[in-house]
Design a protein around this nucleic acid. Structure first.
Lengths: 363, 363
DNA sequence: CAGACTCCCGGAAACGTTTACAGCTATCGG
DNA sequence: CCGATAGCTGTAAACGTTTCCGGGAGTCTG
């Protein structure tokens, strides 16, 4: 009496057929018992026993095909080494877990094709929904987003007309907060270390910086603007280049990783922070508090944005017919040691520092 | 002539039936064209057109059920805020991508049930394979690992007899490297800030530290040992507690996050690093290089371990019948500014520092 | 011009699960 | 004691895809 081959899956693992046969019941009964719905005591006993004996574990793919859901939600971010995304992820995770789902994260590494590929793959039913936070957005990208088979929520700026749920912040205003603060504490030669200009946050922050200077009537000095990547090493190098050609008394950095790089470059160059140069980062991540001196940083509400995005996503999964919504989280500034000191001006006792540029310090 | 309801999926999206009907061909032909295998020029044209018109996008779940693969690989780590896992992830990602698969990361948050739940869910065919790096291992856990339906590779220590592919390092030896270095540079009151003792790395590093002291004939002072979490804030607080009761001239920290916390606590307490207290971290992450002073750190070869784990996984996916393998990556020490200075002893010109504990410095 | 060969096509089975439906037995109320 | 009802059970369809297989048309060779 040979083994019935058909009862087990192609790779030899037991299926519901296997346990049904072993328990001497139909697959329907087996399935019912395994799902804890219905079944006579005797049937339950037999099926449970059979399942345990063969080590049955259900095939989630098959189940999903039938049930049209996977219990998974994905988050796609550019660089998971950036603590801002970690914070966002934690907030999302908390919400998602409360719906009994699990969160998976994918780091796209900024490769745009990677991100679209991910959308095409994951979004095709592997997950119940997806949150993506792209830093570069192409048209191709956008269409991939809007006609995704599963709900998608975008964290970050998006064209005004895009029919996608969207949670954003006003990073231009965020930069303005930093500049306001630095100006208020007597800084005049304010530098800006930005990320790539072909990214959405990069352009927004650049525009914000220029607007803020204009608003304060400070003439723009292109020497004070430097661009690198949104990363530590790039921030350090960009700051070195900037220091090589000019002499700022403050630096606004487009994110905390850059700010840490800047801090490092400044200290290595013998500048004191904040006495000689004040530093303000953006994103207000844990990293800012881990530095010494602790970094002032503009919070863009990453955790809050994550939380809201997750809620939007869950709502849309529950009811896909909802109209596209847009939410906005305001930025705020956390002032810490790296910019805490007020420069000479407000403290007449102190002589001006020996910056060649300090001639403007009068009042 | 009413719409044939059966042709589209239950949620209204087009299926291969939809495009086949629209193109006037069989679903077999439609599928072939969509997969780029076979089909006459005319059929190809019709199917492509139909697919485009209805906006067809294949259901990956259904495809996976048939093909028994998903093209996805998962990595489960405890805390993705820890840069060591980011490094590991990057290394894994590179390997995995070369096989045309995509990597998904799940942060278990150290909740053991979460990790087993993930295994039970993901491993049930949602992914082609999985790499997990557990810090707490229970028996339940272990059985979940060994009879996972998909290949699993474990990064980290595991019982000697576990029949699972495993990539590990020798973190006891790693701690010894740190202690050796500190002793060689004249440190005598070496403290140790560890993570929880109910974790695998926690116990290993504790054992390593005690063994290393014994090896150097240094009597053990329990006051010099403090335990917290493997995180920044916990490391800072643990160090504060330690400083409140004793006065070390060096600190070994069980990972870089703790080391950064320790650094912060030391600086805040007015200790100079490395002049008063040398600090050595573990994992040698980018974070160590981001600090000022830069942190010495014991590399446990995280990237290398990740790379190897990914390779093992791919091999096992290709051939599940392979015997369980185990690989080991040796630790090494990166010496940087935070422990770079040699204490008084080897430099007779310098007077001993005013530590109450420096009476032992004679030669 | 006949046979072999190639190519393309459609029907149908398969992947492993859940579930609608109908039939059966046993119990209960009248 | 009979009909209705409740509870289990098994058969079969469905989820959306890929692929085996057999048949038909066309092309090439001898």
């Amino acid at each position: 009496m040979g083994r019935k081959r058909l009862q087990e899956s192609v790779d030899g693992r037991p299926t519901v057929h296997t346990v049904a046969a072993r328990a001497g019941v139909s697959i329907a009964s087996a399935s019912r018992v395994l799902n804890g719905v219905g079944g006579s005591p005797e049937t339950i006993r037999k099926v449970r026993a059979a399942a345990a004996e063969v080590g049955y574990v259900p095939n989630a793919i098959a189940r999903s095909l039938q049930s049209q859901r996977t219990g998974l939600v994905a988050l796609a971010v550019e660089d998971i080494g950036n603590p801002v995304y970690v914070e966002m992820m934690r907030a999302i995770e908390a919400v998602v877990a409360s719906s009994g789902r699990q969160l998976l994260v994918h780091a796209t590494g900024g490769r745009i094709d990677n991100e679209t590929a991910l959308l095409r793959r994951l979004a095709n039913r592997y997950v119940d929904g997806m949150i993506v936070s792209p830093i570069r957005v192409t048209d191709d990208h956008l269409t991939a987003l809007v006609d995704s088979p599963v709900p998608v929520v975008v964290v970050g700026q998006l064209g005004a007309d895009a029919a996608v749920d969207n949670v954003r912040t006003d990073s231009r205003h965020g930069v303005a907060l930093a500049v306001d603060h630095l100006v208020a504490t007597g800084r005049h030669r304010i530098g800006f270390v930005n990320g790539p200009l072909d990214t959405v946050p990069g352009t927004a922050r650049d525009a914000g910086f220029r607007a803020a200077l204009t608003h304060h009537g400070i003439p723009l000095d292109e020497d004070l603007i430097e661009v690198g990547d949104f990363q530590y090493a790039a921030g350090r190098e960009a700051t070195q280049r900037l220091l090589a050609r000019t002499d700022p008394d403050a630096l606004v950095c487009a994110n905390d990783l850059i700010a840490v790089g800047a801090l490092h470059a400044l200290l290595a160059a013998g500048r004191r922070v904040p006495q000689d140069v004040a530093v303000v980062g953006m994103d207000d991540t844990e990293l800012a508090r881990m530095m010494f001196p602790q970094l002032s940083s503009v919070s863009l509400g990453s955790a809050e944005r994550g939380r809201r995005a997750a809620e939007l996503l869950l709502q849309r999964i529950a009811d896909p017919s909802l109209p596209p919504r847009r939410e906005q989280v305001p930025p705020s500034l956390a002032i810490r040691a790296s910019s805490g000191t007020t420069l000479p001006a407000p403290r007449p006792a102190d002589p001006p520092t020996n910056h060649p540029s300090s001639e403007g310090v009068t009042s």
